[in-house]
Design a protein around this nucleic acid. Sequence first.
DNA 1: TAGTATACATGACAATTATCATATTTTATT
DNA 2: AATAAAATATGATAATTGTCATGTATACTA
Lengths: 224, 224
Amino acid sequence: MSKCEQCIVREFSSLKALNKNELLKLANCKSSYTIKKGEPIFSEGEKIQGIFCIKDGVCKMTKLSENGNEQIVKLIAKGELLGQRSLISEEPVNLGAVALEDMEVCFIPKAEVMGFFNENNEFSMNVMRTICGDLKSADDHLVNMAQKSVKQRLAELLLYLHDKFGTNEDKSLKIKLSREEMAGIIGTATESCIRLLSEFKKKGVIEISGKKIILADIAGLKSV
Amino acid sequence: MSKCEQCIVREFSSLKALNKNELLKLANCKSSYTIKKGEPIFSEGEKIQGIFCIKDGVCKMTKLSENGNEQIVKLIAKGELLGQRSLISEEPVNLGAVALEDMEVCFIPKAEVMGFFNENNEFSMNVMRTICGDLKSADDHLVNMAQKSVKQRLAELLLYLHDKFGTNEDKSLKIKLSREEMAGIIGTATESCIRLLSEFKKKGVIEISGKKIILADIAGLKSV
DNA sequence: TAGTATACATGACAATTATCATATTTTATT
DNA sequence: AATAAAATATGATAATTGTCATGTATACTA
């Protein structure tokens, strides 16, 4: 059983408020998983019995729309926690989580988290601030969806992926998404997404070779 | 100074967890306002120093998009609280609030709310559950915006207004929104909104006379 | 009550986006 | 390596939505 003290999740999440003793308890109750690319961590509507720490890898949070399309509501990187809202609301999760890469996650049972929550005020305030931040992001996201064109949303997505997940040595985006997934994020048809990527490529603001995408002209993308 | 014990806001919000003593403190520190239709309660980016109880009237929560359009993110009815997220995040409000009708609101200073928050666990859990509920709604809303047509969004808006605000004796919707405001909610151009309302009217699913709208065929609207 | 501003409505047209068809390329499997 | 399956790409076309112009109705103000 590995210690939680040095874990990246602790560094970047609400868990940073936990003290030595609490971290020890955490290390004792957690269970570690590996999740293969494409597999779910949990599914929409599931009643999860705790929260998940993302130690490594990236996952998408999805929701099936009434017309059967999969909308990707957000992307979660390593260091973040999943399932906090569901825990507090005591409701099934409203979004599904699916691995976009091979992942390492830890599961912390509900009882343990609620224990920290009730006894460690800084931890509970961290959780709340995280959820408040998520709410603000969701409102901003909504306005973008409602007010911007598909082209603008795609340009912003590329910039977002660049900022959030970074680039490889050859400047290509580290995170690899299928065209279908990109379409699912910006809420458009896969063909439209492909067409716009081709258009960006033709204009020279991006370079594409297979799944590799390089943002060649960031200023140009910003001004779309 | 009126008592808070019988207030509708107490009945429907997180405040229902307050005890007699806390309600008395609340009644002593609150200040009441009336706000005329069209006036703001607060504006986007403002640092508010407490939360607002909506005793009467309806307001819209808005955000200016980069292209200068006003997106209406949600509608708030009497009985609800405003400013909870901002209080916990200790950030300026990310949405503005503007009265759609003459309103009666009370202001509760930050210090008082935080006092309740720290000493009354049920109250703080209520606030958190409210925010979690808002987050879930925001995600759902986002998926609707991304995946549904303008026509579908308008139909759903009408059904939502019907459910949330109810109808007058003549079955017309109680809440009166301008076409521009409806367009701002569903994220479309005012002309498109007007055109679709005309189409619904022609089809017989709604009746319009001026600002009065009657949902004549609710099943028909649901199946749009 | 007249005049003016604002909201509502509709036509004409352009731009955006979706859909369907069909290649082509890439990836996975045997 | 051969084959099948999936992802990417592009054309053709239709449907949706936005924009601009203009007219009409309604509400507000003097």
